[in-house]
Design a protein around this nucleic acid. Structure first.
Lengths: 254, 254
DNA sequence: AACTCATGTGAAAAGTCCGTGAACGTTCCG
DNA sequence: CGGAACGTTCACGGACTTTTCACATGAGTT
């Protein structure tokens, strides 16, 4: 469990860190607002923030964090918050709100609850290698194989492939992909997803020619599905990119 | 939003239902523990339970619900709960705990937060495909299918079709359509909607001849409704506002 | 019937999106 | 310090989509 704490109340922080040490958590204490990117870099699964340390900016900051890191657990604390303040915070996107003074044990339990819920939802990761076309995707190795040989994916390439393959047949929008793989909201105009798709296609094609795995949906995003790359017709296939008349909707079981 | 409430405190329940009515939620009130299967049958996304109505059995029930329905949001209430009780509840698997007395608005906000969190994670189970005539409209693919084959819509074509089909049977004015699909007000004299309707009709007719989906209402706008394209007029318009534009067999393309 | 205006139609112009190669910055290692 | 591996950003050209326009057709009106 990794947590970021933004608070200036030294007494509270001392008691809290005590508890967290006992529980074996990793944490980092900060006295003021932290840029979103830094939260990402810390790889925390939750942030505990006393919104009063930032004054009025607190609400803006809260909103920004919640919208750009929807996967992050956000627990707000505040001295003597009113009902309407609490409601506002929760509506903005906070996952929980604890009014000070409060017992540190309860704070830990609430953070746990928030993170647990997150994990339950996203935990669609079944075990065992995923097979698709000639590919074998092994989550335990962060690598994909063809004929038992690694195709040399980097970490991000692998995560992108794993995401796409895990939603085989579905069209994923760039924003969604970025959110899932990079962990935070995509900046407008960012082309990283396109670039990585290209790298992936290149490596896939090199080791597994004859199959096309990643298909572009113009104006929307990408879809993973192993298909014969019509060897006869490298150019044709009318309306291929946008419309691809192909095997119908797969039952989206998810 | 669908919620199950298990509570015997009539005063609290009255105020709460008031609020939920205002918010347009669907709910069901119960005075005692409900079997897990019944919660499933109700298709609720969250349950608000006063654990004290069941006495000591409450903890057992709470644990059972949390472990067998991990996707369900669970918010516990209780009169004057101690810290250790709250911690226990949260550790068992409850998503949130509100100690009475409390403000109903905050309860709603907390339920919202719990459900929102759940949805963000695993919410792939959204709406199924929309069916109309021979068409299957899939929002997850940004595409429509006939006989399981994509009909090759572009993004805007798809959004126009989705809007019209979602309001099946209703006549939509051009301004309304433009506002919904394009996202901003239509400039005077803009013919984009007409052009896209034409493109849609063309693609629909190509893949699903025998049915007419989009009908013109002269001087008003368009209406979506799958109808036999034979000479028959199954829906005799009461001639009042506008007549059907009975465009005969489309000008031959071949 | 003749006129007027709304809508259908086809294609060209304008705009947007995406594939691609390469430069740049960062981190990690020797 | 230098180099390698990786991720990010940029610019360009082509592919595809959307808008615009001119004209044809058909509906409602006088």
């Amino acid at each position: 469990m990794r947590v970021a704490v933004i608070d200036t109340d030294s007494g509270f922080v001392r008691v809290l860190t005590n508890r967290m040490d006992t529980a074996g958590w990793q944490y980092r204490i900060m006295a003021s607002a932290v840029p979103v990117e830094e939260l990402v870099a810390m790889k925390v699964s939750a942030v505990l923030v006393d919104i009063s340390v930032m004054g009025k900016e607190g609400w803006v900051y809260l909103e920004k964090v919640c919208s750009s890191l929807p996967e992050l657990g956000v627990v707000v604390t505040m001295n003597g918050a009113t009902v309407s303040q609490r409601v506002r915070g929760l509506r903005i996107g906070a996952d929980d709100w604890v009014t000070k003074p409060c017992h540190p044990e309860e704070v830990l339990a609430r953070i746990e609850a928030v993170v647990r819920r997150r994990r339950t939802g996203g935990g669609t990761q079944s075990e065992g290698p995923v097979l698709a076309g000639e590919l074998e995707i092994r989550a335990d190795q962060f690598q994909a194989f063809v004929d038992g040989e690694s195709i040399g994916l980097t970490r991000r390439e692998f995560e992108l492939l794993a995401l796409l393959a895990g939603r085989e047949g579905n069209v994923l929008e760039r924003e969604t992909i970025y959110q899932e793989v990079w962990g935070y909201a995509m900046a407008h105009g960012d082309r990283s997803v396109d670039v990585f798709v290209r790298k992936l296609r290149h490596k896939l094609e090199k080791r597994s020619p004859g199959l096309r795995y990643i298909h572009t949906h113009f104006g929307v995003g990408y879809r993973f599905a192993p298909e014969q790359s019509s060897g006869l017709d490298p150019v044709a296939e009318p309306g291929a990119i946008a419309g691809e008349a192909e095997s119908g909707p797969l039952a989206a079981t998810a």
